[in-house]
């Protein structure tokens, strides 16, 4: 049986897998990191988005064995050890950018990559375009877009706090 060694949220793991085991299965079933979700089988919904080497990827469309030596970050690893939320997590809460919460981990991980790839700022259209790979059925995206815009300003140092009152 193949074995894969990878780092997840800063911690190294060596795991027995099958050739066909997907990264998302490794995370959910072997490491019990169930924050990464599976919402479709056609690589479209984005509920499974994690970071691999800092880039957002769909964990349902990567074999676990392809992750040998990779640095994976999941929703569980975002907040600081003392529980302080990442600005993107905080913004989602502050702007009511989640309802049922199922798409949320993937949405947050995608949003962080989106902000990272646009260090000079993001327009509403760029945010909407950048969410092409994530489907939310609850929110109508309105508040997700607002949350990402606010978090981007904080992450890019253009704004110090997330409170909606600051708008």
């Amino acid at each position: 049986m193949p074995q894969v060694t990878l780092t997840v949220n800063g911690k190294s793991h060596t795991v027995d897998v099958e050739g066909r085991t997907l990264l998302v299965e490794l995370l959910r079933e072997k490491l019990r990191l169930t924050g990464t979700h599976v919402g479709c089988d056609t690589s479209q919904c984005g509920a499974c988005v994690v970071h691999m080497g800092g880039d957002s990827v769909k964990a349902c469309t990567i074999l676990a064995v392809q992750c040998e030596g990779a640095e994976i970050a999941t929703i569980e690893g975002l907040a600081a050890a003392d529980g302080t939320l990442h600005p993107m997590q905080e913004a989602f809460r502050e702007y009511h950018a989640l309802q049922c919460g199922f798409c949320t981990p993937g949405m947050v991980m995608s949003a962080i990559d989106l902000v990272k790839k646009h260090p000079s700022g993001l327009s509403e259209q760029e945010i909407r375009d950048g969410l092409e790979g994530n489907i939310c059925r609850c929110t109508g995206y309105h508040n997700i877009v607002k949350a990402i815009a606010a978090a981007a300003e904080v992450m890019n140092g253009k704004r110090s706090e997330l409170a909606r009152a600051a708008e």
Binding site: G46, S56, E132, G133
Partner: peptide
């Protein structure tokens, strides 16, 4: 092409 995650892979 596709979406960000597709383009990253």
């Amino acid at each position: 092409i596709g979406d960000t995650q597709v383009r990253n892979r």
